[in-house]
């Protein structure tokens, strides 16, 4: 009763009764994670090399595979789940993801825009987006 009251530390598996908490179930979780991550990695290497896929769609496919693999790592290796006990960890993660998104998308949009507007001046010392 008192044990289940505690929150879960990131990396801990959420409250499992002591009777069910065995090495073998943990092993199973890590092995499933490894298999999924290996499949996703192999798929992204295949996607990058194959010509069977419509070329303009390849970057989007790679991005989806990478995000899926990060999810696999978070759930199976870091044990970040949406369970009630790990609310703090998930909230912190959500805030981190928000900042990462703002930094990445913001920089890309601003620099692309700047690049476009500077193009009128012609030579740009080859610094930006040489095509």
């Amino acid at each position: 009763m008192t044990d289940t009251r505690w929150d879960v530390a990131p990396g801990d598996r959420p409250a499992i009764p002591a009777s069910e908490r065995s090495v073998s179930s943990g092993l199973l979780v890590y092995t499933i994670g490894l298999l999924l991550a290996a499949i996703l990695t192999a798929t992204s290497f295949w996607v990058a090399n194959t010509s069977a896929i419509w070329a303009p769609g390849v970057p989007a496919g790679l991005a989806v595979l990478a995000i899926a693999q990060m999810g696999v790592h978070l759930v199976f290796f870091l044990h970040i789940t949406t369970g009630p006990d790990s609310t703090h960890n998930v909230l912190a993660l959500a805030f981190g993801v928000l900042i990462v998104f703002l930094v990445l998308a913001g920089s890309l949009v601003i620099m692309a825009n700047l690049n476009e507007n500077m193009m009128a001046h012609g030579e740009m010392m080859n610094l930006q987006m040489q095509r």
Partner: peptide, 17 residues
């Protein structure tokens, strides 16, 4: 244990930022 883990988790997120 939980406080230390959470604090380190915050550090990791700032590292990722």
């Amino acid at each position: 244990r939980i406080i230390a883990g959470f604090g380190f988790w915050i550090f990791l997120l700032s590292d990722i930022v």
